[in-house]
């Protein structure tokens, strides 16, 4: 019985209010996108937590590998000059 009715997994993203981006809330099972949206409404917005929902099939997400977390993100590691705090500005200089 199980394999024929195993519903795919969906990731749910909720926009909590207008002006904010959608953020990941969790996942759920549903047979199709429409039911995934309805289930997401019932599961993740029971207390008006959202004004907009996205559902994405989990198997459509490509993720970076945790094994290469050092090398993959390494290029940004030695570039502190990308941050404003890298620069020394004399005391008293304003609006900078």
């Amino acid at each position: 019985m199980s394999s024929s009715t195993d519903w795919p997994l969906w990731e749910v993203f909720v926009r909590s209010r207008r002006g904010l981006s959608h953020t990941h809330a969790g996942s759920l099972h549903a047979p199709d996108a429409e039911m995934a949206l309805r289930n997401a409404r019932d599961l993740y917005t029971r207390r008006s937590e959202g004004v907009s929902l996205w559902v994405v099939p989990s198997d459509r997400i490509t993720a970076s590998s945790p094994d290469e977390k050092d090398s993959f993100f390494e290029p940004a590691g030695d570039k502190p000059y990308r941050h404003p705090t890298f620069y020394e500005i004399p005391d008293g200089v304003k609006h900078l």
Binding site: M1, S4, T5, W7, P31, D32, M35
Partner: peptide
């Protein structure tokens, strides 16, 4: 509830 799950899967 089995028939509901099956029907939803077939519909999808």
């Amino acid at each position: 509830g089995a028939w509901v799950r099956e029907a939803a899967a077939v519909y999808a």
